[in-house]
Nucleic acid binder design. Structure first.
Length: 341
DNA sequence: TCTGGGGTCCTAGGACCC
DNA sequence: TCTGGGGTCCTAGGACCC
């Protein structure tokens, strides 16, 4: 989906269509931009940018909060439409793969699906059609907004060759920087690199990079999502906090939020973790695993508070606090475990 | 002008067991 | 005399994604 959160907002606010609009947090506090309209992007506004900075780049920018209910509803509808056309694997709230293997005239089908999404949701989407997930994703990004990019079989390598290595899913800023240090900046250069040499400096993952850069990716579309592996909540405070009571109060709120989410999904957890971020941005986590799984707000808070008190130097100013659970089991699995014990 | 929030996966070291 | 070897679980950090 294109500028998804902003597009969803505009559904309910047609008067703002064509304006520089962004979804994000408060520019007075420590909010960042989540999604920016293409008009806002012309001013350099990007997601993950501090809202304050976005406003400086684009003084007339309208920043609005995200409407999660509406976003979820739109996401569900898009997924439903896609799933009518083949096995569908959701990647995130606004991206999914559909397997059209064996379908007649997939080029036309891709364009039809895009039109159907627009007609039924009134939301703009981009489509990429290719022989693998990796290339389809690059193609889809390449045509934004409202693009429909088809990469015919056999042309994957040529399609990717001129592009920066960053377009490949899994190559982030860190890997791109390290590749640049050895003179590799484009997919074409990466495709020609020696896999063994890359394995030397990038480990197991490195050996596969040249084939990835050629568009070779045998991963299939997998519609079955595994169960959640962790659930967490975190909060960056508007102002750093150093008062123990206030910190405990926040810890209790976050624990309750995590607990609710856990129970709604009918899961229990054996591990509780807390996340710390001091004023100077030093960040770390501490965790504890229990013998028996839990799902209650008070139980989560009790564990979180013990970890917190153990690692929070009294008086240390806190910028962010997080609480999470991992080692998740379904209620059924937990019952089974209990019987075995 | 400092830098959100929700996740996943991988790596590496240490404890512990046989 | 130096210091096996494999498997599993746990912790912590880091890269990456949207």
């Amino acid at each position: 989906m294109d500028a998804f959160f902003v597009s969803v907002y505009l559904l309910g606010h047609p008067e703002d269509v064509g304006q520089a609009v962004a979804v994000g947090g408060s520019p007075d506090g420590r909010g960042v931009i989540t999604s920016a309209s293409y008009e806002a992007r012309q001013f350099g506004v990007r997601s993950a940018m501090p809202a304050r900075r976005a406003l400086r780049l684009c003084p007339h920018l309208k920043i609005v909060r995200s409407d999660w209910r509406r976003i979820r509803d739109c996401s569900k509808l898009v997924r439903f439409i896609l799933s009518q056309h083949g096995p569908m694997e959701p990647m995130s709230v606004d991206e999914a793969y559909v397997d059209l293997t064996g379908r007649r005239d997939p080029e036309r089908l891709a364009a039809d699906i895009q039109r159907q999404v627009k007609a039924d949701t009134h939301l703009p989407a981009s489509v990429g059609l290719a022989t693998s997930k990796l290339v389809a994703k690059v193609a889809s990004d390449h045509g934004k907004p409202e693009g429909c990019v088809i990469v015919p079989p056999g042309t994957e390598s040529d399609f990717l060759a001129p592009m920066p290595v960053r377009v490949i899913l899994g190559i982030g800023p860190r890997t791109a920087e390290r590749l640049a240090e050895i003179g590799i900046e484009t997919c074409g250069q990466l495709a020609d690199a020696d896999p063994e040499r890359l394995a030397g400096s990038f480990g197991r993952h490195g050996r596969r990079l040249p084939e990835r850069a050629r568009g070779i990716d045998r991963r299939s579309v997998n519609p079955k999502r595994g169960p959640a592996r962790s659930i967490s909540g975190e909060r960056t405070f508007g102002k750093d906090i150093d008062d123990r009571n206030e910190l405990h109060e926040q810890l209790r709120k976050l624990s309750a939020r995590v607990g609710r989410s856990l129970r709604r999904r009918e899961l229990v957890a054996r591990t509780v973790f807390v996340k710390f971020r001091w004023s100077d941005f030093t960040t770390f986590t501490r965790r504890h695993t229990l013998e028996a799984p839990i799902d209650g707000d008070d139980e989560i808070f009790e564990q979180a508070a013990a970890l917190w008190d153990e690692h929070w130097p009294s008086g240390q100013r806190v910028r962010l606090m997080g609480v999470g659970v991992a080692n998740l089991l379904s209620n059924r699995e937990a019952r089974q475990m209990f019987l075995e014990l």
